[in-house]
Nucleic acid binder design. Structure first.
Length: 596
RNA sequence: CGGGGCGUGGCGCAGUUUGGUAGCGCGGGUGCUUUGGGAGCACUAGGUCGCAGGUUCGAAUCCUGUCGCCCCGACCA
C-alpha cells in the first residue's frame, strides 16, 4: 500500500476529548474516528490491526477444536425471558439496547450470546455422543454502557470473540476450561502482549470458576491484587486475604461511652483513644431484587475494613436466592418516603438494631437481612454503636448482642494484607485492563433454557457449559497502551497494520525513487506487509508519521540510494543500521519469519 | 442517574467577565524557494459561534429551554 493512497490523516495536536495515551494516539494516527459517544469507526489502518488479531485468535480457537459461527445480533426477547435476564438487562440500568419490530415484538441487540447459542445447542445436540462441542464467533456486540469511556476501552459497540462450550460432565468442562486457558495465553503472547491471569468474579453472566486476563496499565479500570511471589493474583472484586491483626481490646464489663457529634469511625477513634480495628462498622443498605423485592440490609464489618459490593451482592443472592439489580444506602429521604421515622441513629448503628424500625415500611421488607463479615465476627471484644445517637458501647461481644448474624466474606482485600496461601506474603495492588475472561458457567443457562442431552443411561441431563470472551477491539487499544513511546505507537509486529514502511526521503530524487519502488515491490512479493511512503513531503514529516503510526521496521531510502545503501530502523529501540538494500531485505525476512 | 467541565472553520484554542465588523496556530488549495526529524514567503478557500426561543437599535457574549461531548462514581470484553 502506498501512503499517498492510504487516506492517512494524522493530527499534530492532541484531540481534546481523549484522556488516555492509547486513545489519543489512535485518534492522532487516524486509526479510529468517533461517530457518537462510545461508537467508533475503525479506519483502514485499524481494520488491518483488528484483522491480524482476529486471525491469531481464529488460529488458536480452531486449534483448540472450536467451531466458528456467526450468530445474530438481534435477539428475540423470549430467549432472554427464558434465561431470566430480559428484565435485568433492559430495565433500569440494564445495558441491552432493545427495540420493537413492526409487529410490536421486542428484540434486544446482543450484548452477549449465551441465550442464542444455548437455544441452538438444545435443538441440534441430543446425545452425549455429540459432546463435547464448542462454538465461537467474532463479531460486533452492543452494550448501552452507563458510561462509555477511553475510546475503544469501554465502547457501546465493540468487537468481541466469544466462545461457548457444551459438555456432559463437569470434569469435561474443567478440562476444556484449562485448555482454553492455555489457548488464551498463546493468543496474547501471539499478539506480542504481556498479560496477567487473575481470579475473577463471574459477574452478571453467572456461574462458577472464572479467570480474567489483564494488561497491566495505570489507566486500567480494574484493580488487581497480586502476591509478592506471584502465586496468587485476583481481581479486587474477588480477592481474598487475611486482614492485619486487630488491636486487642481488654475488658469484659460493658459500659456506654458518650460520643457526641462523633459520626465517623475516625472521630470515635481519635476522641476515645481507640483503633479502627476495635470498632464495628455497621451499614444499612437496600438490595433491590429482580423480582422487585426491596430488602433492607444491616451489614457489619471491622472498622478498618471496607465492604466489597461484588462479594456483598453474591452473598445476598445466595441468601435470598434472587438476583440483585442494585444496592444502595438507606438515607433519611428514603426512610421518609417509606413513611418511617427518619430518626435512625446513623453513626451509632449496631448489629442488634431492631426490626421494629421497619414495621411500617410501605414497600420495603419489614426485617433486616443481617450479615457480618468474618473480620468483625472474629473480634472477641469490641466497641460498637448503641442504636441511640451519640452513644457507643465499649467492651461488647457477640453474645451480648444476641449472637452472631450470618457470617460471610464481604470484605475488600487491600494492598498490604497477608495472603491466604502463605501469610508471609503480602498483597500488592496494580491496575489492569481486562482483555479476556473465561468462565465455567455450569448449568445455569442449560437449566434455564431446558437445554438437555441424553446420557448413556438414556436419561436427560442439562449441559455443562463454559464461556470464553476476548475483547478484540479493546485488546487492540490496550496493546497501544502497553506499547508506545513519546513519538507514538510501537505496535508489536504480530499485530502491526504493516510490518515495514519504506520511506523515500526525497521523492524528486530519481535514484531514491527507483530504489524505494524496487525494495517495496520485492518485499511485497515475499509476502511482507509493506507500506511505501511515496508522498512529496519533506523527510521529517514522513519520519514523524511513520513513528506515530508505529510500523515496526522502517527502511529509509535517501542520500545513499545511488550506491544502493539504505537505512534500516527499528521502531521499538530506534536502532539504525546502514546496509545494502539486499542486506536490509534479508534482515527483514529473518526477523519477520521468526515472528510468524 | 448524581457530581464537575466543555460546545466558536477539519484539529487545537482565544474572544463571553464589561453586548458593537468573528480571530490565532496547525491543517487544506495555488505559486515560488527549500528538501534527513512535523520548512519559509506570498496569495487563497473554509464558520447558521451546538440548537431553539427571548431581552436589545444590535447577541458568540445577557436570560430561558434543549441537544451533544468529556471527566469522577455504580456496569463490563
Amino acid at each position: 500500500m502506498r501512503v499517498s493512497r492510504l487516506m492517512l490523516a494524522t493530527l499534530r495536536d492532541i484531540p481534546a476529548d481523549a484522556e488516555i495515551t492509547s486513545h489519543q494516539l489512535l485518534l492522532r494516527g487516524g486509526f479510529i474516528k468517533r461517530v457518537a459517544s462510545g461508537i467508533y469507526a475503525y479506519m483502514p489502518l485499524m481494520w488491518r490491526v483488528l484483522q491480524k488479531i482476529t486471525s491469531i485468535v481464529q488460529q488458536e480457537m480452531n486449534a483448540a477444536g472450536c467451531l466458528q459461527t456467526l450468530l445474530p445480533q438481534l435477539h428475540p426477547s423470549e430467549l432472554w425471558k427464558e434465561s431470566g435476564r430480559w428484565q435485568g438487562y433492559t430495565a433500569g440500568e440494564g445495558i441491552m439496547f432493545n427495540l420493537k419490530d413492526r409487529q410490536g415484538k421486542e428484540l434486544g441487540l446482543g450484548p452477549t450470546h449465551e441465550e442464542v447459542i444455548t437455544s441452538i445447542a438444545r435443538e441440534i445436540i441430543s446425545s452425549y455422543k455429540q459432546l463435547p462441542v464448542s462454538f465461537y464467533q467474532i463479531q460486533t456486540k452492543f452494550r448501552d454502557e452507563i458510561r462509555p469511556r477511553f475510546g475503544l476501552m469501554r465502547s457501546r459497540e465493540f468487537i468481541m470473540k466469544d466462545a461457548y462450550s457444551f459438555h456432559r460432565t463437569e470434569k469435561d468442562l474443567k478440562e476444556k476450561y484449562n485448555k482454553m486457558d492455555e489457548a488464551y495465553k498463546r493468543i496474547f503472547e501471539g499478539c506480542g502482549l504481556n498479560t496477567v491471569a487473575v481470579e475473577a468474579d463471574s459477574g452478571a453472566i453467572g456461574g462458577g470458576a472464572s479467570q480474567e486476563f489483564m494488561i497491566l496499565a495505570d489507566s486500567g479500570e480494574d484493580s488487581i491484587l497480586t502476591s509478592q511471589d506471584g502465586l496468587y493474583s485476583a481481581n479486587l472484586e474477588k480477592a481474598i486475604s487475611i486482614p492485619k491483626k486487630p488491636l486487642e481490646l481488654d475488658g469484659k464489663d460493658t459500659y456506654i461511652i458518650q460520643t457526641t457529634n462523633q459520626k465517623s469511625i475516625e472521630e470515635v477513634c481519635s476522641n476515645n483513644k481507640l483503633d479502627p480495628s476495635q470498632i464495628l462498622k455497621v451499614v444499612a443498605m437496600l438490595a433491590i431484587t429482580q423480582e422487585g423485592k426491596i430488602q433492607p440490609l444491616l451489614l457489619t464489618i471491622r472498622g478498618d475494613q471496607d465492604i466489597n459490593e461484588t462479594k456483598l451482592t453474591n452473598a445476598i443472592e445466595t441468601e435470598l436466592k434472587q438476583n440483585i439489580l442494585s444496592l444502595k444506602q438507606i438515607t433519611k429521604d428514603g426512610l421518609i418516603s417509606q413513611g418511617l421515622s427518619s430518626n435512625w441513629p446513623f453513626g451509632s448503628l449496631a448489629p442488634d438494631l431492631s426490626d421494629d424500625l421497619l414495621i411500617n415500611a410501605k414497600t420495603w421488607e419489614r426485617n433486616f437481612l443481617r450479615l457480618v463479615d468474618n473480620s468483625a465476627a472474629e473480634l472477641k471484644s469490641f466497641v460498637c454503636g448503641s442504636n441511640s445517637i451519640d452513644k457507643h458501647r465499649k467492651f461488647m461481644d457477640w453474645e451480648k448482642l444476641g449472637g452472631l448474624p450470618k457470617k460471610v466474606d464481604i470484605r475488600n482485600s487491600k494492598a498490604g494484607d497477608s495472603c491466604v496461601h502463605d501469610p508471609d506474603q503480602k498483597l500488592l495492588e496494580r491496575r489492569g485492563i481486562e482483555i479476556g475472561h473465561i468462565f465455567q458457567l455450569g448449568k445455569k443457562y442449560s437449566n434455564a433454557l431446558n437445554a438437555t442431552f441424553t446420557n448413556e443411561q438414556g436419561i436427560e441431563e442439562s449441559f455443562w457449559m463454559g464461556c470464553y470472551g476476548i475483547g478484540i477491539s479493546r485488546l487492540a487499544q490496550a496493546a497501544v497502551e502497553q506499547h508506545h513511546d513519546e513519538s507514538g505507537i510501537v505496535w508489536p509486529i504480530e499485530i502491526a497494520p504493516f510490518e515495514v514502511i519504506v520511506v523515500i526521503a526525497n521523492i524528486n530524487d530519481s535514484n531514491q525513487q527507483k530504489l524505494g519502488e524496487k525494495i517495496y515491490q520485492e518485499l511485497i512479493k515475499e509476502g511482507v506487509d509493506t507500506l511505501l511512503d511515496d508522498r512529496p513531503e519533506r523527510a521529517g514529516v514522513k519520519f514523524k508519521d511513520a513513528d506515530l503510526i508505529g510500523i515496526p521496521w522502517r527502511v529509509v531510502v535517501g542520500r545513499d540510494a545511488a550506491s544502493d545503501k539504505v537505512e534500516l530502523v527499528n521502531r521499538a529501540n530506534k536502532q539504525t543500521s546502514i546496509l545494502s538494500s539486499q542486506a536490509a531485505k534479508d534482515a527483514l525476512y529473518r526477523d519477520i519469519s521468526n515472528k510468524s
